[in-house]
Computed example of a mutant assay.
Amino acid sequence: MSGRPARGAALVLVLWLIVLLTAVVGGYALVARTGHLQGRVETGQLQGDAVARAGLEYAVWRLNHPEPALRWHPDGRPYRWEYDGAQVEVRITDERGRVDLNRAPPQLLQALLQALGTDPGRAAALAAAIADWRGADGTPGPGAAGDAAYAAAGRAYGAKGAPFESAAELLQVLGIEPDDYRRLRPYVTVHSGLPQPEAAFAALPVLEALGVRDAALLVQLRGQAGGAGNPAAPDLQRPGADAASAAHLLQRAEGGAVRRGTYSIDSLARLPDGSRTVTRAVVRLQGTGAPGMAYMVLAWEEGASPQ
């Protein structure tokens, strides 16, 4: 009789050991599966980055394709390309088609903000604050936010009094909210050096800010010409001064001269599994300073959803 309690205790111990081993094996299996899934995600991200980078490199080459009729045009129209089973969509914008934060007058900045849906009164205040930020003397203009206003808002800095170094500096300007920056970012630059954008390369909100009457028609023509890179002949035959002006601007964007300017390139890669990766860069096709370099990188963002 004395041996039965010992045998019972041994049985309980064995059962607990089985439970413990099951937990250990289950935990190991979970860790292994998690690591496998993480590895797949990282591999997919690397593949997406490589495909998006290939799209950017291809876009640089197509900007100055040996055959002028096959060149891609830097006015923001989409170009689609297939690479290693992935779908790539590329948009190229000449930086001259964007509003330069360091050179644009406040009236143009206000018009752009209004074209993007900002209330006129607030648009005027934000435009003045942007102009004040880049001002050289630190003296606020009418309606602008001076250093005292920054201090009153609890910010440890005042207006910079120097040029914007990147568009992201807008987030430091008093009154600019993240949503304002998100809407402005695609249409502003610090690289053109122009007080007024070139309409031939500008997007619709910039065209509206410039007061171009044929803005919507021009954007429509770009979309129709996007795949082939050629003007959409049927629509160019539409009567009226607006159609003629739109055709002229479209043809300027499609000029055959060798391109050596500064361009923003967005390359969106869609992999067969449905994942997406974007590479965005601002590149200059001249003055690289190094033999064999096709371009100089001025700005670079990449990832699944770069900011």
Rank of each mutant, 00 (worst) to 15 (best):
A145C: 07
V90F: 15
L184V: 11
A145N: 08
L184R: 07
L170F: 02
A159M: 05
D100S: 01
G143V: 07
E169R: 14
Q172E: 04
L101N: 02
T93M: 11
A162K: 14
I92W: 01
L108M: 03
G146V: 08
G121Y: 07
A123G: 03
G146N: 05
A145Y: 13
V173K: 06
T93P: 02
A129Q: 02
R185K: 10
R91P: 10
A128H: 02
D119N: 12
R91N: 05
L113S: 04
A168I: 00
G117H: 08
T139F: 03
K160C: 01
N102I: 11
E177A: 14
A162W: 06
T139I: 14
D119A: 15
G143C: 13
P178F: 01
G146S: 02
V99G: 03
G138H: 11
R91S: 08
G135I: 08
S166I: 09
K160D: 10
S166W: 09
K160F: 14
R183F: 14
A148D: 11
L171G: 05
A168H: 09
A148Y: 06
A152E: 13
D119V: 05
R183S: 13
A125T: 09
A129E: 01
I176W: 09
A148N: 00
P178K: 07
A125Q: 10
A152S: 09
G117K: 06
E95Q: 05
E165L: 11
W133R: 04
L174A: 05
N102S: 06
Q172R: 15
E169I: 14
P140H: 07
E177W: 09
D94A: 10
D100Q: 01
R155H: 08
A129L: 08
I176V: 15
P106H: 02
A128F: 07
A152C: 07
I176Q: 08
A136V: 15
A115S: 15
L126W: 10
L170S: 04
R182K: 12
G143D: 08
P140S: 09
A152I: 15
G154D: 02
T93S: 10
A111V: 02
G175T: 11
P163C: 03
G138M: 12
A145V: 12
A148V: 14
